[in-house]
Nucleic acid binder design. Structure first.
Lengths: 162, 162
DNA sequence: AGGAAATATCTGACTACTCAGATACTGTTG
DNA sequence: CAACAGTATCTGAGTAGTCAGATATTTCCT
């Protein structure tokens, strides 16, 4: 694992490069495919689904936009435009932020709540059908544990990299 | 795990939705951050790096473009444009495909090989420094095994979803 | 062989991001 | 409290993807 990388072929075959590449590639494709499935079934993009979930966890008053750009890998400009589209689609609404007149609060509309429920059902169904059911039942726990370990490790790593 | 989802709050708190969301989010951010690091250090995008590695694994003759769109989550149109930029940057070159006159072969230039080596060094260094070194040494094997299991499971799931 | 269907790539039009700069506030500090 | 650095959001311009349609060539079937 500690060899110097001399040629391009060696670089491409390096154990760490290969292992991380496969892992990240698989995770990306999974997200891509699950996102596509929601998009086709519910007519909202993957990012919109994430935002619906973030807002569903918040309380009545909603969240300021910056809270959304922090949770997603999106610049503030990107969030402005994403929320513009979601507002145009009737899923969220913007209101004044009483604590800070620079900011706006974003909260779910009734239609947004309904869409969050609908999309979650689709999502859970897809995960279960294609991801979990083919595994023998006793592997579910092990798998869930793997997910936890990896998401924590990956999260820690991101924190250090920044 | 089998409850019906009734409200948006329940949807957002659903165990599967949360676990997959965290996992995919962490994997994405990790890829994003590692990609950024390569971009800043080497001046190539994350996708260009992936393509350099794919081509480095191929033999002298290179690969047809379609082989690249298959390995990446990219349409053929996207590959055309990505390779356009890489060719403009001097990293790859296109040649005729003697077996199929519709297609073109893409292969690394000397500059492309050098860039693959350079970027891999940076990548390995970052993974090691931020991801592996903070783990106690005896966890490395367990971790590598986790990566293997998860990337295989995710790959299988994607196959079933399509 | 002759022609239909499939495949590889390229392109025009569109979309959704990024970055940087503008605007409008807030908070801190001398 | 006046100035100034900081923060939240929005916007213009640029970039890199998608999709669908065009073109050239191959493959398959009769």
């Amino acid at each position: 694992m500690g060899e110097a990388i001399g040629s391009a072929k060696e670089a491409a075959g390096n154990e760490l490069v290969v292992a991380f590449g496969r892992f990240l590639g698989a995770a990306n494709r999974l997200e891509h495919v699950l996102g596509r499935a929601i998009e086709e079934a519910c007519g909202i993009s993957h990012l919109m689904f994430e935002v619906l979930l973030i807002l569903a966890r918040a309380d009545e008053a909603g969240l300021p936009m910056r809270a959304i750009s922090r949770e997603q890998v999106l610049t503030t400009g990107g969030v402005t435009r994403l929320i513009d589209r979601m507002e145009a689609a009737g899923l969220v609404e913007r209101g004044a932020n009483p604590d800070d007149r620079r900011g706006r609060m974003v909260r779910l509309t009734a239609a947004g709540e309904a869409k969050a429920v609908e999309a979650s059902r689709v999502h859970v169904e897809n995960i279960r059908r294609y991801f979990l059911e083919p595994l023998p039942a006793e592997h579910h726990d092990v798998f869930a544990e793997d997910l936890r370990i990896l998401s924590r490790s990956a999260g820690d790593a991101v924190g250090r990299l920044r």
